[in-house]
Design a binder for these strands. Structure first.
Lengths: 261, 261
DNA sequence: CGGCTGATTATGTACATACATTATCGTCGC
DNA sequence: GCGACGATAATGTATGTACATAATCAGCCG
């Protein structure tokens, strides 16, 4: 269906482009062709590609189309481009391990468990009084929450959270009797950047008691700070029993997906 | 689909001053302007944007330039576009927590430590003999490695690795006396996708002895499988002392970075 | 009423052209 | 030899134009 319709676009007489597969838009075909050369190792790291002019005559398309394909590949990290110097195969792909940011309730529900949460503690205070959140000015009103997440009745994650009441004043009126704080915040407050730290810790006695495990049990500790409009929104610390909780994710380059590599 | 909330933003936009900031390329200014409206909450999730024609006259640029800006924002997940229907503010940003995939030697070197590694064990075997790697056919020749990474002489990470010798036969001849396996593989073999699992475990006695900690110490466990050209390349399991090692990263949307939000 | 169908509309792709931006390279002058 | 400097070659941006594609909408007809 695609192939036939495409020919009517511009009946290019030659069409002798052995490397293009004829599927989908031209710029996508170019992307696949070039990414294929790289992923299959034919164009080695650091090598210089033909320039846009050469590629355009090689593939029989206009420079704009080549430019779009190559610029996208550069944006995806396969290529590095320097004016006047040319286009090079990226020597190091600065790949990233991507983990989805999900509400734990969703995760539990999806895995078939029954999700519950309990608010263990809730108070408002000012920064610097009992707790200091370094990235927020002293004296800023904060909401402090402690919360336990359960799957099928078993404690699975302990959450300690600070919310900047200057940035999100509405949260003060929210009872959190049906919606968990994390979900409420995700739905309510957009964020523009988040920082995470993940480490492993041995459970202290009080946390262990809450989570129903022996003191010293390995727990995954996730600290997340969310920022929006130059203001810190929330600082949250999750502690989860190692046995019952893990993070997982995959990194797949778009081009690899297209190529079925 | 989203029944009610499709009011045109054209009139509202006349109230909001669409002035561009004049910094950098036009399409980038448009991106910032539009992303700003969304991130500041002026254009709500599900709302419909003015079409490219309207935006182009609103900002006084050509449709192509608007198209480029909007298409990029759509690619970044801020917008959803449907032909004939229009462009809508994405209701859910499927945000991801990105962790860099780095060689531990680099990490240690950057933090000023002296990096060393020791190969503790090396053997070749066939899949299914002593070990089974589920994603690889039984009988496939494998290289099995155990390796310890040290920072300033102190053990910091234990690595157990399987390499598919059908996919990377050259690895059989590599002595790994100066280059660590992870670095060798990163430089040698491109990969197109990787899967990770992160959890916390209590160190078993033998691992604890290797890492020089008490048995039961919380360790971060990272499992990574790398795939290329539809073949599994390597399966590696890292165990690091929680005290001495953590993962950290940040997720920042490109547009937010540009906006300094 | 309900389904088919064709017109309409918004996005998507492609090409041509022009000019801007910048490293790089080679040459000139010292 | 070495530094300044301009020519040059590559990518980057912007616009115009044309047509393709897809989904919606309205109206027609059964």
């Amino acid at each position: 269906m695609q192939g036939a319709a495409r020919q009517s676009l511009t009946e290019r007489a030659s069409g002798a482009d052995p490397s293009l597969d004829g599927k989908g838009p031209l710029f996508g075909q170019i992307k696949r062709a070039v990414a294929g050369q790289i992923l299959r190792g034919r164009w080695q790291a650091g090598e210089r590609l033909p320039n846009e002019e050469q590629l355009s005559s090689l593939y029989g398309v206009s420079r704009q189309t080549v430019h779009k394909a190559i610029a996208l590949l550069a944006r995806e990290g396969f290529l590095v481009r320097r004016r006047r110097a040319g286009t090079f195969v990226a020597s190091v792909r600065n790949d990233r391990f991507a983990l989805p940011i999900e509400d734990i309730g969703d995760v539990i529900a999806r895995s078939g468990g029954v999700y519950e949460f309990r608010i263990l503690d809730r108070k408002t205070l000012r920064n610097g009084e009992a707790i200091r959140w370094p990235d927020v000015p002293d004296g800023t009103p904060l909401l402090s929450l402690e919360c336990l997440h359960l799957s099928d009745g078993a404690p699975i994650q302990f959450e300690r959270r600070l919310v900047n009441l200057d940035a999100v004043p509405e949260v003060a009126d929210e009872p959190f009797d049906s919606v968990a704080p994390s979900r409420w915040l995700v739905n309510q407050v957009p964020w523009s950047s988040a920082e995470h730290t993940v480490k492993a810790v041995n459970a202290a006695a009080d946390i262990a008691a809450l989570l129903g495990v022996e003191p010293g049990t390995a727990c995954l500790s996730i600290r997340r700070q969310t920022v929006h409009l130059n203001r810190s929104i929330t600082l949250v610390h999750f502690l989860s029993v190692g046995e019952r909780f893990s993070l997982s994710g995959s990194s797949i380059t778009d081009s690899a997906t297209e190529l079925n590599l």
